[in-house]
Design a protein around this nucleic acid. Sequence first.
DNA 1: GCAAAAGTGTTGAGATTACACCCATGC
DNA 2: GCATGGGTGTAATCTCAACACTTTTGC
Lengths: 210, 210
Amino acid sequence: MRVPTVAVDVVLFTIDAGALKALLVQVRKGPFAGRWAFPGGLVPLGEALEDTARRELQEKTGIADLYLEQLYTFGEPDRDPSGHVVSVAYFALVPAPVPAPPDDPKYARLEWRDVRKLPRLGYGHNALADYALARLQAKIEYSDVARGLLPPEFTLAELQEVYETILGRALDRRNFRKRVLQRGLVRPVKRVRRGPHRPAELYAFAQRER
Amino acid sequence: MRVPTVAVDVVLFTIDAGALKALLVQVRKGPFAGRWAFPGGLVPLGEALEDTARRELQEKTGIADLYLEQLYTFGEPDRDPSGHVVSVAYFALVPAPVPAPPDDPKYARLEWRDVRKLPRLGYGHNALADYALARLQAKIEYSDVARGLLPPEFTLAELQEVYETILGRALDRRNFRKRVLQRGLVRPVKRVRRGPHRPAELYAFAQRER
DNA sequence: GCAAAAGTGTTGAGATTACACCCATGC
DNA sequence: GCATGGGTGTAATCTCAACACTTTTGC
């Protein structure tokens, strides 16, 4: 092989049981066999990077529709002991509830793991996890990335829980509601979610991103 | 060729004559021959991406010491008509005054061009220019990237001119000085620059980045 | 002494934080 | 009627933008 190989790796986040989780796959070959790492794969000739990322996730989890954003490209030649692999990292979001990963022994094992309690990962992927989390925390403050973690309609309490889980700290309810409303991030949809207590107004993200 | 090739492209900025300029090279081969584009080159097996970027700039301009930061990776297969090239884009900064590019006919022609008046570039590089400028504008607000565009000691007027050139608008002198000082971005070095008028205090960037 | 750039404070507006009580529903 | 989560306003503080005059030097 005369040139570096190109791969994509994807940090797929979801929120589950009040925790921010990422999808891991168990490495099957090479010096990292048995370790966990983020899913990824080689980019074939002629395929766009983002398409490779989506295809890999689709094949591994069946999830087709998700938010995907490029993170960083790692190109140190000694990161992968099997050769010089330039790895384009993405981060992705999928709304809860996420379908349970198929536990087909034909495929590598998959697991959703709390991002703040990751084991030592293969291919130096812990740095990737830190990077992805930092980006997510930064973006949630000024963009509508939270869209990728929620269903089309949701209560403000649910939205706030997403923010708190990502940021890792509690937020004031009144201030939170004021902010997201007057920033025009969400709009009420004139429906309510009924439950055991007082019904909650439902909201949706506003059309235009900002 | 069975896999995509990996290349780096670098948007090298400097400030010259009150304008933000970028280094362009003239394309010599292929369908974009004659057009201008940002300098770049293929990543050889075993070399880190950033090393390739530095080496290319060093070879083309002789500039060795510069600020370099990864921007984005473009991987659409049809961007380069000669094949599927995954291009990792960097942006770089070099302080003025910048050495004049050698006009050796053995090498491709080089030119510093005003970033806001670029011609139609090869390889779809106009998008890259926009992206790099947006990143620079964003980062100058909260980081010390301006460090890469100034000599070790400078006056606050010079610093302000860098900000104004990058942001493309005038800033209030008093507010500007207040901000950079109380943010701890710069510190006075107890020396002055003498000129035709009142001497100006010299400053240097503070040690720690933030 | 004059031209030119350097240096310096205050005020008002808007944004952000802190904080506690009533409301609507299911059971 | 009570337990539970849903919904709301105000005051204090901080941050950011607007704005004009005096100082120091070279000539």
